Computed example of a mutant assay.
Amino acid sequence: MVIAGTADLVVSYAFSVVGAIILLVAGFIVAGWAKRAVFHALDKRGDTTLARFMAAGARYGVLILVGVTVLAQFGVQTASIIAALGAAGLAIGLALQGTLQNVAAGVMLLFLRPFKIGDFIDAGSVMGSVEEIGLFATELKTFDGLYVLAPNSSVWGSPVTNYSRVERRRFDLTIGIGYDDDVDLALETLGELVRGDDRVLDDPEPFLFVGALGDSAVEVTARVWIGASDWWTASRELTKKAKQEFDARGISIPFPQRDVHMITAGQN
């Protein structure tokens, strides 16, 4: 009888083990399918970052469901396991409040999309091109090629300036000229310069004006709009060419000056 009972137990557990193995194999296959399906569905919309996040979430969701089902195969009360996991999750959450803040901030960044991979951003203490947006941190690459790993909570908690979000940016080319120089000639020179550059947009058209009468110079400005991808190089090159054109036409760019009146002793 003991031998027969043992044999029945072995057979019963053997079927449970075989069933668990089949469930695990099928679960991993389904998890892979779910990950690829979610990724391709979201990636078609051009949102690669969110596609990766949701695809990973779909895979882990399927694997967790498979794990609970496998335990049920061996007669384990899954309700108690789920309750235990919930209690453990609460304890871990209390112990990792800072980490969970990063996770929550990462979720908000992924769904609200203030920036995407490849955008150049300024988020308070960090600035650079976005390389990756993860659940815990955002990876950036600075202008000088340095790698920056910024916690999501610090990025989410700061005002974010996205230099790549809009298609065009304004640039004010402001130069100070001497009070003895011809203002109209200076404005004409700036107008010819900006209108002759193909990177300067025609709409809105360039706006030329005298901005201020400073202590040592008259400020003349050419306000133009440039495509975001060309803004950095175009703004620097236009500034250089403006200096060269002003020099060629005899328009001075004065440095700050101050008149000093000397009063000697006994002089009224």
Rank of each mutant, 00 (worst) to 15 (best):
V25E: 03
V25Y: 04
V25D: 01
A26T: 03
A26Y: 00
A26F: 01
I29W: 10
I29D: 05
V30R: 01
W33V: 08
A34F: 11
K35F: 00
R36F: 03
V38Q: 01
V38L: 02
V38S: 01
H40N: 11
A41E: 06
L42D: 00
K44P: 06
K44S: 09
R45H: 07
G46Y: 03
G46L: 00
D47N: 09
D47A: 09
D47K: 05
T48R: 06
T48I: 04
T48C: 05
L50A: 11
A51K: 01
F53N: 03
M54Q: 10
A55W: 00
A55G: 03
A56E: 04
G57A: 14
A58R: 03
A58H: 04
R59D: 10
R59C: 03
R59P: 01
G61E: 14
V62M: 07
V62T: 11
L63T: 03
L65V: 13
V66R: 01
G67E: 04
G67R: 03
V70C: 08
V70T: 10
Q77F: 14
I81A: 14
I81R: 12
I82R: 00
I82D: 05
I82K: 06
A83W: 11
A83I: 13
A84P: 15
A84G: 15
L85S: 15
G86H: 04
G86W: 09
G89M: 09
G89P: 13
L90Y: 07
L90N: 08
L90I: 11
A91S: 11
L94H: 15
L94S: 12
A95L: 14
A95Y: 15
L96G: 15
Q97I: 15
G98D: 13
T99D: 13
T99W: 12
L100N: 02
L100Y: 09
L100Q: 07
L100C: 03
Q101H: 10
Q101M: 08
N102K: 05
V103N: 09
V103K: 06
G106I: 03
G106P: 12
M108N: 14
M108G: 14
L109I: 02
L110K: 11
L112C: 15
R113H: 13
R113E: 15
P114I: 06
F115K: 11
F115P: 06
K116D: 14
I117C: 12
I117P: 10
G118I: 04
G118D: 06
G118W: 08
D119T: 02
D119N: 09
D119G: 06
I121Y: 05
D122F: 05
D122W: 07
D122T: 07
D122G: 02
G124R: 07
V126H: 02
G128D: 02
G128P: 00
V130H: 01
I133G: 02
F136L: 04
F136M: 09
F136S: 04
A137C: 06
A137T: 11
T138L: 05
T138I: 01
T138N: 07
E139F: 12
L140D: 08
T142C: 02
F143D: 12
F143K: 12
G145D: 09
G145K: 04
Y147R: 13
V148H: 08
